[in-house]
Amino acid sequence: MKKQIFAALAALALTFAAQQGAGASDAAPVTVDNYGRKVTVTETPQRVLTLGPNCTELFIALGLGDKIAGNTLDNHSRGPLPEYAAEYARVPELNYGSATREAALTSGADFVFGIDWEFGGGGLDIAELEANGMNVLVERASSFDEAYDEIRSLGKIFKIEARAEEFIKEQERRMKAVADKIKGREPLRVLVYDSGSSGVFTCSGENFESLLIERAGGENVFGGLTGKQWVTVSYEEAVAREPQVIVIHDYDSPSVEAKIAEIKANSALSQLECVKNERFVTIALESVLPGSRMAYAVERFAAGFYPEIFADE
């Protein structure tokens, strides 16, 4: 009987030691590289600000929606994808537009994951957020490798590394399925039309959207431009590139309908065959940002570029 009691106590001691060891491991500091910034997290964050709808959806996709304490930039959103809608609806809104300094500093958050345009240049100051107890991970990927590195960093920080890898593999699987269907096709020349006034506000080759277009069987006609992600080109320059299809960003204002009307009324753009034939592909702005919708964007682009291939999907 004594031997049995001793064995039971020993087993309990081993279990307790194992649990303590696991807890110590979970509490061990995690350091990730964020474009040259070392971000060290000593405890798994519990209250997170996701600055940008793409960042919010990514957290939900990774099973971290319950940790979101506030989000921003819903003014640049056309609403979450159906699979994320229910959980997205429960996310508190920090700001409808860009984050304000006061809202961020009084949020009680211990971690911030946000798109790069929310920081600096009149936006939030990373050093100030860190001084107020918030670790900051900036989303600014300009390649798939960088986007996947960001996701893997979140996996390490929130102890969901397997889930992060699973998400990456699923994105790659879906994009490969598109590539298999369009194999052998000559890339279509694509003009991205975000907005227009004194010219076409479009994306350069440094913009992540160019990579999504490429994966979908297109080629950004201004993909050769570098230096910054967004550029304004003249209407004449756009026409000279002879685009075969125009991608139009959908967000709050101006509406897609207004943009199409602008294009048709423009004396230069209206001469394009793709305008005459209404070869327009619309997509929500958050869909062309790195995050949860990479495969979705490629699928949507491909369906618009090659409707004869994807007509039944």
Rank of each mutant, 00 (worst) to 15 (best):
K3W: 09
L12N: 13
F16S: 13
A17D: 10
V32H: 11
N34I: 00
V48L: 05
C55F: 03
I60W: 02
G63R: 08
G65C: 09
A69I: 02
L73S: 15
P80D: 06
L81Q: 15
P82V: 05
Y88M: 12
A89I: 11
P92H: 09
L94G: 03
Y96F: 14
E102L: 13
E102V: 10
S107N: 09
A109K: 03
E118S: 14
E128H: 14
M134F: 05
V138A: 00
I160A: 05
I160Y: 10
E166D: 13
K169M: 15
E170G: 05
R174Q: 13
A179S: 13
K183N: 14
R185M: 13
Y193L: 09
C203H: 07
L225M: 05
T226D: 06
Q229F: 12
V231E: 15
V231S: 05
V231C: 04
V233P: 01
P243I: 04
Q244I: 08
I248S: 06
I248D: 00
I263Q: 00
A265K: 04
A265R: 09
N266L: 06
L269E: 02
E273G: 13
E273Q: 14
R279S: 10
R279N: 12
F280W: 07
T282W: 08
E299L: 05
F301Q: 03
Y306Q: 03
